[in-house]
């Protein structure tokens, strides 16, 4: 059943994504309300799927790559709705929807493949680690998308082309606030997520774990994240410079994610 609900969610996200793309050209309000509705229904089914997975799974939840993808997609959609609720804008959807859709697509395609036990995953520290890190990741991703929207809107305002697509983007200050708030929000999760991971690693592998490429990349990502946050907070970095920094942090996050393949200790269960 969780797979079925996940596929329902995927279909709904797909419809939402199509609406979001169509809304780029067509300003009718009906499109965005259809988009909100389908995405909202999608996230509900997605939640059902996640809960059922957690309850039914023989192995520990969040131990396979696809479950983590599913969780990340869910958190991104949740961010989209929080932003919509707070700022009344659906613009981040144009970036969030494709990513959520792809993550969910990938999650459902190999969902059933997982089986067997997860010898390394047992302690609740692991759940905390994965959950917190994913919250941090989604905040970083949304913040990165927001800085891209900022660049687009800034360029439009400087080029003095009013109307068209840019007229439907939120105000520059609003986009900036979304990006900054997401960073601030994600920071403690990222930090505590890494600490939780370290606690597990320390207990299991000792100091050797800290020479693992995965953990090195993760720490590099965290440092970039911190620098970005500090630069925005103290020097008021916005626009191009903030976007570049966010892109670096995002890239480091991607590498840290991909570094699972290099790591001998930090692995998802593979069938």
């Amino acid at each position: 059943m969780p797979l079925f609900w996940l596929r329902v969610a995927l279909t709904l996200y797909g419809v939402g994504l199509l609406c979001a793309v169509a809304a780029l050209w067509d300003s009718r309000r009906r499109l965005t309300s259809v988009m909100r509705f389908t995405a909202g229904a999608g996230i509900v089914f997605h939640f059902v799927s996640l809960t059922e997975t957690a309850m039914l799974s023989e192995t520990a939840p969040l131990s396979s790559l696809h479950q983590v993808e599913s969780l990340l997609a869910f958190l991104l959609m949740a961010f989209f709705f929080v932003i919509y609720w707070r700022y009344q804008t659906v613009s981040p959807g144009i970036a969030v929807f494709p990513l959520s859709f792809l993550l969910t697509l990938s999650a459902q395609s190999a969902f059933m493949a997982e089986s067997g036990t997860a010898p390394q995953v047992s302690s609740s520290w692991i759940y905390m680690h994965v959950g917190l890190i994913m919250l941090g990741y989604s905040a970083l991703i949304v913040s990165f998308f927001a800085s891209i929207l900022y660049l687009i809107q800034e360029k439009n305002l400087k080029a003095k082309t009013v109307g068209g697509f840019s007229s439907r983007l939120p105000a520059l200050a609003t986009i900036d606030e979304i990006g900054y708030r997401c960073l601030v929000f994600g920071f403690p999760f990222m930090t505590f997520g890494l600490i939780a991971g370290s606690v597990v690693a320390e207990a299991r592998y000792g100091a050797a774990y800290f020479r693992d490429p995965k953990i090195l990349f993760s720490i590099a990502m965290w440092v970039l994240y911190t620098v970005l946050l500090y630069a925005r907070w103290s020097a008021g970095w916005r626009g191009r410079r903030a976007a570049y920094m966010a892109a670096f942090a995002f890239g480091a996050a991607l590498i840290a994610w991909a570094a699972n393949g290099l790591s001998s200790m930090h692995r998802f269960i593979t069938p």
């Binding site: 809107q153 305002l157 009013v162 007229s167 939120p170 105000a171 520059l172 200050a173 609003t174 606030e177």
Partner: peptide
Amino acid sequence: SVAVQLAEKIFGS
């Protein structure tokens, strides 16, 4: 009103 509109595009409110 164009000036106001632009200002709102920049500052939100």
